[in-house]
C-alpha cells in the first residue's frame, strides 16, 4: 500500500460520505443519477465476491463491505425514502443500463486474464466502473443549477481515479511483477471521462460561480 493508493481510497470514501451527507442533510437527491448509483452497486457486488474466498487484509475487507453497504443505502434512500425519492430527477435520468452493461459483459467474456466465473465477473466490474459515471455526467449536463455537494461528489470520484493512476505508475516501478494493462486502460478511460467535468469545475471554482456544464 502506497500513499497514492491510500489517498485514492480516502477520496473514494469521502465522495460517498459527501453524497450521503447531501441526501441525509438536505433530504434531497436532486442532480444525482440513480442509474450511476445502481451501476456502482453492481460494480461492487461483482468485484467484491472475493470477500467469500480470498482474504487480503482487514483494511481491504472493511473497505469492500463499506462500499457495498453505502451503495445499497444510497439506492434505498433514492428509491424508497418518502421525502428523498420525490426529489429524484427521474425524467432527466434516462440513460439505458443495457448500453453500458451489455458491452462490458461481452468485453469481459472476450478480454480477461482467466476464463473463470469469478475472474470474468471481476473483469466485468473493471470495465463497468470505467463507464458507470456516464449517466451522472449526462444528468449534470441537463441540470441547470448543480449544487456544490453534487459537484464535489463527482470531483472526489474523479480525484480517486486520478490518484489510482499515480499509484499504478508508482507500483509499476517499485513492484517487478506488477503488470495489468487491462486495469490500466480501463482506468485511463475512466479518468478521461472526467476531463471535461474538471475543466468546468476548476473554472467555476476560480471565478467563484456555480458549476454549469454546457449541453
Amino acid at each position: 500500500m502506497n500513499l497514492f493508493r491510500l489517498a485514492g481510497d480516502m477520496s473514494h470514501l469521502l465522495s460517498v460520505c459527501v453524497l450521503l451527507l447531501k441526501i441525509r442533510a438536505t433530504k434531497s437527491c436532486r442532480g444525482i443519477s440513480l442509474k450511476t448509483q445502481e451501476l456502482y452497486a453492481l460494480v461492487f457486488v461483482t468485484r467484491y465476491l472475493d470477500l467469500f474466498y480470498s482474504y487480503i487484509s482487514l483494511y481491504n475487507s472493511i473497505m469492500k463491505v463499506t462500499f457495498i453497504a453505502t451503495a445499497v443505502s444510497i439506492i434505498r434512500y433514492m428509491r424508497f425514502d418518502k421525502v428523498v425519492k420525490q426529489t429524484y430527477d427521474k425524467e432527466q435520468d434516462t440513460f439505458r443500463y443495457a448500453f453500458l452493461v451489455a458491452p462490458c459483459l461481452v468485453l469481459a467474456l472476450v478480454l480477461n486474464h482467466r476464463f473463470t466465473f469469478t475472474e470474468v465477473l471481476w473483469t466485468f466490474s473493471i470495465y463497468l466502473e470505467a463507464v458507470a459515471i456516464l449517466p451522472q455526467l449526462v444528468l449534470m449536463q441537463r441540470t441547470q443549477n448543480i449544487d456544490n455537494l453534487t459537484a464535489n461528489y463527482v470531483a472526489l470520484l474523479g480525484a480517486y481515479r486520478g490518484l489510482y493512476i499515480v499509484n499504478w505508475i508508482y507500483r509499476y516501478f517499485t513492484e517487478p511483477h506488477y503488470r495489468q494493462w487491462l486495469v490500466w486502460i480501463s482506468g485511463v478511460v475512466q479518468t478521461a471521462l472526467y476531463a471535461d467535468f474538471f475543466y468546468f469545475y476548476t473554472k467555476a471554482w476560480k471565478h467563484n460561480t456555480r458549476l454549469q456544464l454546457p449541453a
Binding site: 469492500k64 462500499f67 475472474e119 471481476w122 513492484e175 511483477h177 506488477y178 495489468q180 487491462l182 486495469v183
Partner: peptide, 10 residues
C-alpha cells in the same frame, strides 16, 4: 499475469 497482483486493490 499474476492474479494476486491485480486483486489487492479496491
Amino acid at each position: 499475469v499474476s492474479k494476486g497482483a491485480t486483486h489487492d486493490e479496491l
